[in-house]
Design a protein around this nucleic acid. Structure first.
Length: 787
DNA sequence: TCTCACACCTTTGAAGTGG
DNA sequence: CCACTTCAAAGGTGTGAGA
């Protein structure tokens, strides 16, 4: 076995690593060797932050002690055997959260009514090359935090499924499989880290997050694919330094009503209208009587009048709260729970089926038509697909002239602030009244939407496209020179933060590295960043950028973070960015080799489903039951390997290139290709992959290592999860048991490559550490003399 | 389906003004 | 010095023509 060698190597590059005791599980050992990045074993990040009672005790005593501590902390203790979380715990004292106090964050979505309005229509978010903000803005109110503890709040946007959509017949329909995923980025709130008290003082807005379809974006915008569906996620990380990010507990919150389809041009006119009506910046397009809309309106009056004629009968007998433009009053009854849950929350398996059928005739689940009746769309309109302009004009015609009388001032909280929103709502109500006077009214309820909840094996070929990013991309993102001005995974806002924002130790390194990487590779100094306002770099960052190997390695991380594809729904890569960043930050404190190793490990940490969850039960996950479809383990592994391979290749530029990544690349390259082209060569790769998977199973299952501490034990097949969302009473609090169940680890059936295999995995939301990396596998691989 | 220039709008902060 | 107003620049919108 290679463990001794690995141990030595690990010790060489990780300050927290201790020699692997004989009875220390391989997984835990590897986790220790690459403490922040041990995704393969689904190691809860929080677990890493939990020190062993005695670092020297890795055996039963430590396990027992840790088990007790875990139980005390609410951790589940595995029912699988004598491997409590302690087996994975390492002492990371320097990265320990200080005087940790239990908190119980609750998160509520601001402007929920507005989100609901959009959601009913099938929210569209425009993405442009120069970046566009989200509207409605993603804004949450947080409570239950430890007032004195510091938190980092993050947001990311992950693929909601692996389908591509088209707007056809006024409906969003599946139009095939998703395109290769864009590199994903985590948006760290510019105020991070801040105390719980600060976060709770006011709603946390992510309105500065911008969406783009420019894959080479250098501004840190979130890159999305047009005509694809996405789900924003909100994360709370208790950490006072970004360095601690990978070791800290992630709490992830998903608000299903915030999902959207990225578009380069609005498809649904009702969405357009809703945006115009609610976005202060689009006020110029309201029919105030002096804008260009007025001119257009005049040109299209006939059709508009015709539309009004259509709508009159329905309006008379309905409330106005569900119009396409007006936020609903609080009394608005939700769509029938049994009929129309989020149409975007499609079960994965179902989504795959849909993707497979380009002309899937289930349009009622998507697009405006799902909300059409609720929006007053007349049957006549439903049955036909009027020209877009005509419909838009019709919608515009419904706008009340009163709108023009509205004051233009904005709320003190900004255009999308609370006051602003309230004002908008008031305005909307007034408009609604005016509309009522004009004969407009609410329209019938939502058409029922079918949410698939079957839990058939989701590990189909449908996941593979998520891995099928082109080799070109690989080369560009991974093999390209560091100074190629790679896009950044941190939002520019990070660089504009005050001196109190991130500590010099944390952000300083990151900033420096960002600058260095962008400016010309590891040697890049401050101010050389491309596409960044290097002037935003603080002294710490500047200093750090010139000190040591960190910038170089972070650049590596950045490259990888840009090149690793985000998995599709239930896919693989929700956390490339953050963990890249964190890895880089951590690496900054390590020797070059260790940083390289961290980078490699970080690359491997990218593989997981957007909704894959940590195995750490105490983590707070989505406030909703996520209609999880089980990530394709094959894809997961394959993608992870692909990523790792790419990463390894990127590491080839290292000053101290490690043969390991290269070897890993060789070994995993074929496996990665499996997902890309299941052709002849794929078989060989598939076989290789299977060997890895077998090894994996042997190591982790046969050893009885409870990678995912589960009171439920191992499931023989993919978990059967309800596809229905289970909003909590407040829509935010942690779902008691459904969520817990989701936290349970699963043994997932692997499909897609050769025979079925099982690898352990979990399937839900948070845990960024799930995938296995070649660098981690390789020693095992070789040790077992796998083919 | 995407890009871009455009007009229109809000936001923001500096400058000016008056008490 | 402070509060308030005014102004201009910056930046956020959807539009619509063209690719």
């Amino acid at each position: 076995m290679r463990e001794p060698a690995l141990a030595a190597s690990a010790m060489a590059y990780h300050p927290f690593h201790a020699p692997r005791p004989a009875d220390f599980p391989m997984s835990a050992f590897l986790a220790a060797a690459q403490p922040s990045f041990f995704p393969a074993l689904a190691l809860p990040p929080g677990a890493l932050a939990k020190p062993l009672p005695d670092p020297g005790l890795a055996g039963a005593a430590a396990a027992a002690a840790a088990a007790a501590a875990a139980a005390e902390a609410g951790l589940h203790v595995s029912a699988l055997g004598p491997h409590p979380p302690a087996a994975h715990l390492r002492s990371l004292k320097s990265l320990e959260p200080e005087d940790e106090v239990e908190d119980d964050p609750k998160v509520t979505l601001e402007a929920k009514e507005l989100w609901d309005q959009f959601h009913k229509l099938g929210t569209e978010m425009v993405i442009t090359k120069s970046g566009r903000r989200m509207f409605p803005p993603f804004k949450v109110r947080v409570s239950g935090l430890d007032k004195k503890a510091k938190y980092i709040l993050l947001m990311d946007i992950v693929a909601a499924d692996d389908c591509r959509y088209k707007f056809h017949n006024s409906r969003w329909m599946v139009a095939g499989k998703a395109d290769p995923e864009m590199p994903k980025r985590m948006y760290i709130h510019p105020d991070s880290p801040a105390t719980g008290e600060q976060w709770m003082a006011k709603p946390v807005a992510f309105h500065k997050l911008k969406l783009t379809n420019n894959i080479s974006d250098k501004h840190g915008f979130t890159i999305l694919n047009s005509m694809h569906k996405y789900q924003p996620r909100f994360h709370i990380v208790r950490a006072n330094d970004i360095l601690k990010l990978p070791y800290s507990t992630f709490r992830t919150y998903v608000f299903p009503e915030t999902d959207f389809i990225a578009v380069t041009a609005y498809q649904n006119d009702k969405i357009t209208q809703l945006k115009i009506d609610n976005n202060p910046f689009a006020k110029g397009f309201r029919d105030t009587g002096n804008g260009r809309r007025e001119k257009r309106k005049q040109l299209t009056l006939p059709s508009l009048r015709l539309y009004e004629e259509h709508c009159k009968p329905e309006r008379d007998g309905a409330e106005s709260d569900a119009s396409s433009c007006d936020p609903p009053p609080a009394r608005e009854p939700p769509p029938s729970p049994g009929t129309a849950p989020s149409p975007l929350r499609l079960h994965r398996t179902r989504a795959e089926e849909k993707c497979a059928a380009d002309s899937d005739p289930e349009p009622e689940r998507l697009g405006e038509e799902r909300a059409g009746p609720a929006l007053g769309r007349s049957p006549a309109l439903d049955s036909s697909s009027p020209p877009r302009l005509t419909e838009l004009d019709r919608a515009r015609e419904r706008r009340s002239p009163e709108r023009g009388k509205e004051p233009a001032e904005s709320g003190g909280n900004g255009p999308f602030g609370l006051r602003s929103l309230e004002k908008e709502r008031a305005e909307a109500r007034r408009k609604d009244e005016g509309r009522k006077e004009a004969g407009e009214g609410k329209e019938p309820g939502l058409a029922p939407l079918v949410v698939q909840t079957d839990s058939a094996s989701p590990l189909g070929a449908g996941h593979l496209p998520g891995l099928a990013f082109s080799g070109h991309l690989h080369g560009q993102q991974f093999f390209g020179p560091l100074g190629a001005g790679q896009p950044l995974f941190l939002h520019p806002g990070q660089f504009a933060m005050g001196p109190g924002a991130f500590s010099a130790m944390g952000m300083g390194h990151l900033l420096a590295s960002v600058a260095g990487g962008g400016g010309g590779g590891g040697g890049g100094g401050p101010g050389t960043a491309t596409g960044l306002d290097a002037g935003g770099l603080g002294p710490a960052g500047s200093a750090a950028s010139t000190a040591g190997p960190f910038p170089f390695h972070l650049s590596q991380h950045m490259l990888a973070s840009q090149g690793i594809p985000m998995p599709t729904f239930g896919g693989l890569f929700p956390y490339p960015y953050t963990y890249m960043a964190a890895a880089a930050a951590a690496a900054s404190a390590l020797p070059a080799t260790s940083a390289a190793a961290a980078a490699a490990a970080a690359a491997g940490s990218l593989s997981r489903s957007p909704f894959l969850g940590s195995a750490r039960p105490r983590l707070r996950f989505s406030p909703y039951q996520i209609p999880v479809s089980i990530p394709p383990s094959t894809s997961l592994l394959t993608t992870g390997l692909a990523a790792e391979g790419s990463k390894a290749a990127g590491g080839g530029n290292s000053r101290e290139p490690s043969p390991l990544p290269e070897l890993a690349l060789r070994k995993v390259g074929a496996s990665a290709r499996v997902a890309l082209s299941p052709g002849g060569a794929a078989k060989e790769a598939a076989s290789e992959l299977q060997s890895i998977q077998r090894l994996w199973v042997q190591l982790e299952i046969a050893q009885g290592v409870a990678l995912c501490q589960s009171p439920l034990g191992l499931a023989p097949s993919g978990p059967s999860l309800p596809g229905q969302l289970l909003p909590q009473e407040d829509g935010l609090s942690t779902p008691p048991h459904p969520a817990d169940r989701c936290l349970q680890p699963q043994i997932l059936a692997v499909e897609g490559v050769g025979e079925r295999q099982v690898i352990p995995s979990d399937h839900r939301g948070v845990c960024p550490f799930l995938s296995i990396t070649p660098s981690q596998l390789l020693p095992l691989f070789e040790a077992c003399e796998c083919p």
